[in-house]
Amino acid sequence: MKIVEVANVESSPNPHGVDARKIYDTENAVAVHMTLKPGESLKKHITPVDVFFYVLEGNGIVEIGDEKKNVVKNTLIESPAKIPHCWYNEDKKDLRILIVKVPRPMKSTKVI
């Protein structure tokens, strides 16, 4: 059994400059724990594979394609491959999200 504690995983450098910790990485999938501090956002980007997001804590705004929605804790959001998307934390508290990419991407994410 492998157990990973998020606090023990170092944040990976990323083009968004946010706290993103890869907590699962196999040949089949990747999972990242991301924290957006109040006022932080991601740059709009395209992922080459399907992604789903699960909001662990906080409230945020997710933009996928032409849709923009406010989402809250315990919400799952699907983001199809090759569709531009981004996140915004306009709240006064941290926004923590679990990001799962399936299948594991063979190409890099592209910032727009």
Rank of each mutant, 00 (worst) to 15 (best):
D66W: 00
V71M: 03
L36T: 02
L56P: 08
H33T: 01
E27K: 12
H45E: 12
L76D: 02
V71H: 06
K37G: 00
V32E: 04
K69F: 06
V55E: 11
E63Q: 13
T47D: 14
A29Y: 11
K73F: 04
N70S: 11
H33E: 11
N59W: 03
D66E: 12
V55I: 15
D25C: 00
T47L: 11
H45Y: 07
L42Y: 01
V72P: 00
K82S: 13
D91R: 00
S41L: 02
S79N: 10
F52A: 05
N89L: 09
E63V: 15
N28V: 01
V55Q: 13
S41P: 01
K92M: 02
G65W: 11
I83S: 12
I61G: 02
E27Q: 11
V30E: 15
F52T: 08
A31T: 13
K22M: 09
N89S: 06
S79V: 11
V55R: 05
T75Q: 15
F53D: 14
P80A: 08
Y88D: 00
G60Y: 07
V49L: 11
E78G: 09
N74T: 12
V62L: 07
A81P: 10
K43M: 02
A81F: 09
V71G: 09
N28A: 03
Y88S: 02
G60A: 07
E90W: 01
V32N: 07
D25A: 08
E78M: 12
N89P: 08
T35H: 03
V62P: 09
N59V: 12
T47W: 05
Y24F: 13
K43H: 02
G58L: 07
K93H: 08
V30R: 13
D66M: 05
V30C: 04
E90G: 02
G58P: 12
E78F: 15
V30S: 06
A31Y: 04
H45N: 07
N28Q: 08
K73N: 10
H33L: 03
V71C: 13
T26W: 02
K37C: 01
L56A: 14
E27M: 06
F52K: 05
E90Y: 05
K93Q: 14
